[in-house]
Structure formats: C-alpha cells, structure tokens
Design a protein around this nucleic acid. Sequence first.
DNA 1: TAGATTGTTAATCGATTAACAATC
DNA 2: TAGATTGTTAATCGATTAACAATC
Lengths: 207, 207
Amino acid sequence: MVRRSIPDIVVGRLPVYLRALSFLLAEGRQITSSQELGDRLGISSAQIRKDLSHFGEFGKQGTGYDIAFLYDQLRQILKVDRMWDVVLVGAGNLGKAIADYGGFAGKGFMITAIFDNDPDKIGKPMGINNLIVRDVSELANAIRSSEIKIGIIATPARDAAAVAKAMAEAGVKAILNYAPITITVPAGVRVQYIDPVVGLQRMTYYL
Amino acid sequence: MVRRSIPDIVVGRLPVYLRALSFLLAEGRQITSSQELGDRLGISSAQIRKDLSHFGEFGKQGTGYDIAFLYDQLRQILKVDRMWDVVLVGAGNLGKAIADYGGFAGKGFMITAIFDNDPDKIGKPMGINNLIVRDVSELANAIRSSEIKIGIIATPARDAAAVAKAMAEAGVKAILNYAPITITVPAGVRVQYIDPVVGLQRMTYYL
DNA sequence: TAGATTGTTAATCGATTAACAATC
DNA sequence: TAGATTGTTAATCGATTAACAATC
C-alpha cells in the first residue's frame, strides 16, 4: 500500500489538537468527541475526523475518543513523545525570554545551547537551564557534534539569513524563526515563523 | 459593483509582502517584480499578482512595481499607515519581552497600557515606553475610555479566556494571543496565535 | 520596435463539508 | 435495542497555477 503523503495543513493542525487534548486531560476528562473538540477549537467535527483518518482509526463509534489514548497517539505521530535538543541563537531580550520559557520541557523540547555574537553576552549564564552563552562561531561545530536537528533564531533580522545558513549546513532540519524576515533554506529544511507584527497586521485590515 | 470579499488567506499574505518591500526599500531599491518578490518569499509570481489584483492595479506591464508606491498602498490597505494603540495583559517574562520589543513602533503599533494581576508587578514601570503596570481590574475601563481595538494576551493559559472575554466585551476587535490555548471570542473579534510549541511541533513530524 | 511584466482568465489542484453506512 | 458517533465517500467549495493578451 502506498502511504499517500499527508497534507502539511493537516499536520499543522495536529499540534493544536494535541494542545486541546492536553487541557482535557488536565481537567480529568476521559472521553471526548470530534464535536466537542471542534467546538472548542472553532473548527468542524468533520474536519477533525478527516484529519485524524489520515493516520489511522483512533475512536469508537457511538462513544468518541479516549483522550489519553488519542493524546499518546498524536504525540507519537508528531514525534514529540521524546525530548528534542534545540539550539538557540540570539541572547538579547527575545532570546532571554525564550530561554526563560518554561513551556518547552513538557512538550518535547529542551534548549541545550545558546549562542550570540556579542562579547558582553558570551560566557554568561542564561535561561531556566542556566546555559552559558557561547560564541556563535562555535555554532556549526556544536550542532554537528550533538546532531541537533532543531534551531531557534532570535537574532536581529540582518543576522538571520547567515544563522539559518549555518544551521542548515550543520544539519539542522527545523528552524523556528523569530527574526522578522523571510529566510531561504535548502530543500528538506523547514521553517516556522513567529512575527507578532505580521500577526497584528493580519487583523488591522478588518478593523 | 459589489466588492467581493477578499479571502482571509490573501489578506494574511499582505503583511509578508509588506515586510519584504520594507527590506527592498531599506536596500535602496526602486523597482521590483512579482518574480523577484516571489523568489524572495518562496511563493509563485502568479500568486503575488493574483493577490494584489484583489485590491487594484499597482504595477506597470513591462516594468514591475514601484517599491515605495506599493509599500504605501499596502500600508493603507492593511490600515497600518497610522498608529494603533495596543493594550498588553501579562507582565511576566513574556510580557516584559513584548513591552521591550522595539519592532512595533515602525509598523503601526504602540503599546499604551500594561496590566497584570500580581501585586508585586502592579505599579512598577515596564517596557520601552516605561509604562506603569496597572491592575487588571482596571482593564475594561481603560479599553473603553481609550477606545482601544487591539489587545495582546501574554498571561498563563489559565487566565487567557477571562482576559479575552474582558477585552472583547470592552470593545477590542483584534487579539494577539501568546497564551498556549485556543480562545473563544464573539463574532467580529479576530485572534492570531503565537505559540512556539505549536511552531516546533509542526516540524517534528517531518524529522 | 523588441522585450518584459502585468492583470486576468480558465484549468487544475487541493481542502472542506455534508451525509450516511457502519458499528459501538 | 436505541442512540450516538465514528470513518469515509462524494460533492462542494476555494485556492493556486499556467498561460497569454494587453501594454508599458
């Protein structure tokens, strides 16, 4: 059987489903339905069932979905049933906030190295894991020796392209880019963008 | 003539075009083409032309687009050719990083009030504009009296729903939500989400 | 003029939804 | 069994792309 490749847009919704399931779990709930999930997330129940059907059958007719089971299944599918080492470049205000963020650990990610090009920042401890900020010139070697696959860019826009290039050449395959600029990466490398200005400007049109 | 409503997905790309144009401007360039823009952004030139065509004719056959002109036009379309007051709720690590961020001012946004529910934070100055953090109980009145339309939520997940509700009831129509939870808002209120975990989990599937 | 690029049309491609048989 | 909800199909809806006349 040829496993038809799954649309990016479907994969992109799974983390949102996962997050909702995690809240349901925390509320002590056992069972949910595509209807309930859809209501919570503002999407149709049909879409949730269709999305999940790409990966298998996870529910029971007449009953719905076992929350803990579906949660585990989605974590496996998304490969966040493990810990991923993440490298962070940029130790300014934003980098510090990211390094201080406590929300990664429970979701499959751990920042294990922080880099900057500012001599005033290099050598100082940062973040919840008290990592020593290292010189960005060591970035490529650090990625290679630890086989790190995930990078976060929190530099000014002007440095982002060079950092992305260095990351990709050293073997990073997934980049979370906080710099407000579109970056070009080789095929096989994925980028997700976080830009609050873009978020805000997507809404002002409707005001 | 009935102005056919423009797809959200098209509006959503305009800020990205705007950002690219802003870089071209900064490089001192005069003219660009849908081809060049597309190459930079990793999308097809046809899509750029089609997107722009929803709003008017901005280019010249044989030549392309005047960068400064198109930049101005998109700023008008997106209504970021003015300054929007923005209210920020949450003065923790994340809220502080947002308040310290210097990238809003040039893009149409200014944080003019910050709220928290922690007595240790209330009354202290914060951010690049040295705003005094206020008690979240004053939030609704502050929004109403200043007619603020845009809010940023940077609270823990457990508080986000209540804050969103208060914002919407007081007249906010656009919410940038950093809390890692889907929020429900009345019709006519828009939400954009910023969740780094979702961003990362959208990529691990492919690793 | 010759070359280049737009704006737009029509075709293609892909995503969402409605509906329902299957079945718990 | 009766009621509920899944998984899936087919239809609908919407977005993207290719192609090209228009025209600068």
